[in-house]
Write a protein that binds this DNA or RNA. Structure first.
Ligand SMILES: [Zn+2]
Ligand SMILES: [Zn+2]
Ligand SMILES: [Zn+2]
Ligand SMILES: [Zn+2]
Lengths: 133, 133
DNA sequence: ATGCACCTTGTAGCAGCTACAAGGTCAAGC
DNA sequence: GCTTGACCTTGTAGCTGCTACAAGGTGCAT
């Protein structure tokens, strides 16, 4: 299949696919006589894997690791599980950060009882550190 | 004060401060005879504002808006509040996304009962779409 | 023959820094 | 007086994960 079909099949832009090749995430495809990339079903499977892993928040580096691991059917899957656990804990900590942020933003919003910027507690709170009366 | 002191005082790297100047976030400082940047207390206040806003997740563009707004004491603070509300809702939607991710990763983790990668459901689930028996 | 959709490469851009390199300045210590 | 070292200056390039061109080649229908 050509790059456009693969793109369609995986919901990826052709430019992104070429980028993955450059980045060493997706192996280079064969070429037709007219130098078009010619992808196999295996490429399709790999790209699907990549997209799914990316959608789950794995970094390119992690995806590379996952791909390398998934090539070794006979090895223990401990390392795979480990990567997933790691990603899970990163997501957890991002959620925690954002939740704290959310809290602060909420308090900011509530703090405004003024009508003009000169009296606005929001602006005040942004300028100074959070010490408030 | 020189850039190093300002950096220290605000927990910002000197290189970042220069970047903010280039990016039009922080006004250019005066220069000493030897061409060193010489910052005022107002710069300190502005940079504090900027860092706080950035820490709250506002983009550079939003910070620029906030700075512009905070310059106009007499204008209504509605626009400030609006920016905060917008940021709050962006944070909310990121939290929602990450929570969904977290859920999927958790299920992935639970799905593994194998010892070797060839049988690992995690690898399987990453490859195919989520249709599972 | 002409149009059009597709493909190719290469390059540059986005955010928000960070990390050099190559050099100038200033105070302290000997 | 001179060196050492901490600071400062500019400029440029790198990071992540794409995305968007531009300039040209190919394949097929009309
Ligand atoms: Zn208000
Ligand atoms: Zn207000
Ligand atoms: Zn396992
Ligand atoms: Zn497993």
């Amino acid at each position: 299949m050509r790059i456009g079909e693969l793109a369609q099949a995986t919901g990826t832009k052709a430019e992104t696919i070429r980028y993955y090749e450059r980045a060493g995430i997706l192996p280079a495809a064969d070429r037709t006589d007219s130098n078009y990339r010619d992808y196999s079903d295996e490429h399709l499977a790999t790209l699907t894997f990549v997209r799914r892993a990316r959608a789950l928040g794995f970094s390119m580096a992690q995806v590379r690791e996952l791909l390398a691991l998934s090539d070794h059917d006979d090895k223990p899957c401990e390392n795979v599980d480990q990567l997933v656990r790691q990603q899970l804990s990163e997501v957890d900590s991002k959620i925690a950060d954002l939740t704290a942020l959310r809290e602060e933003l909420g308090q900011l919003l509530q703090s405004c009882e003024a009508d003009r910027i000169g009296d606005c507690r929001i602006v005040e709170s942004l300028s100074a550190s959070r010490a408030r009366p």
